[in-house]
């Protein structure tokens, strides 16, 4: 990929029907970054889960709002998800114990297994800016070494 920084931004309505578009763009950015197939699947699912959370919790199901998703490919694979909805309370975001079988609470685990950094930008006054970063690892370089 060289030293060039690759980036892309999409803005989509807060409607779940756009999740497939978000997944498709995430997968393409993963390919550009040189991720291996299984890693792309994990990252795609994680971004889907993060955007689903925005639709569900920040916008409480209001489909007329907007979500901005920014991909920055540099030393790591970075995804920044912004909304203008209800502020998340990071200290309260905790998935269910995986041994506790009940609906819900799985999404946060799926996000954190794909990304090394999961952080809300405290400087954002209104809404949320979630920064997800996956550092480049061996599994991300599989495809690079094969090409």
């Amino acid at each position: 990929m060289g030293g060039m920084k690759d980036s892309a931004v999409i803005a989509v309505p807060s409607n779940p029907k756009y999740l497939s578009l978000i997944r498709a763009v995430t997968a393409t950015m993963g390919e550009i970054y040189g991720m291996a197939g299984p890693v792309i699947e994990d990252v795609k699912l994680a971004v889907d889960e993060a955007c689903s959370n925005v639709m569900k919790y920040a916008y409480r199901g209001d489909t007329s709002k907007r979500i901005i998703i920014r991909f920055v490919l540099k030393k790591g694979f970075e995804v920044i998800i912004e909304d203008n909805g209800i502020k998340a309370q990071p200290e309260l975001i905790e998935g269910r114990s995986l041994s506790d079988v009940r609906p819900g609470g799985l999404g946060i685990h799926l996000i954190k297994r794909a990304f090394d950094v999961f952080a809300f930008d405290e400087k954002k006054k209104r809404g949320n800016r979630l920064r997800l970063i996956r550092h480049r690892g061996e599994s991300d370089e599989d495809r690079d070494s094969r090409q």
Partner: peptide, 16 residues
């Protein structure tokens, strides 16, 4: 072709 946590939750609810 794909499942996310909302799909998993649906099956858990059905099972319960």
């Amino acid at each position: 072709t794909y499942i996310d946590s909302s799909g998993i939750a649906t099956f858990v609810e059905g099972l319960k």
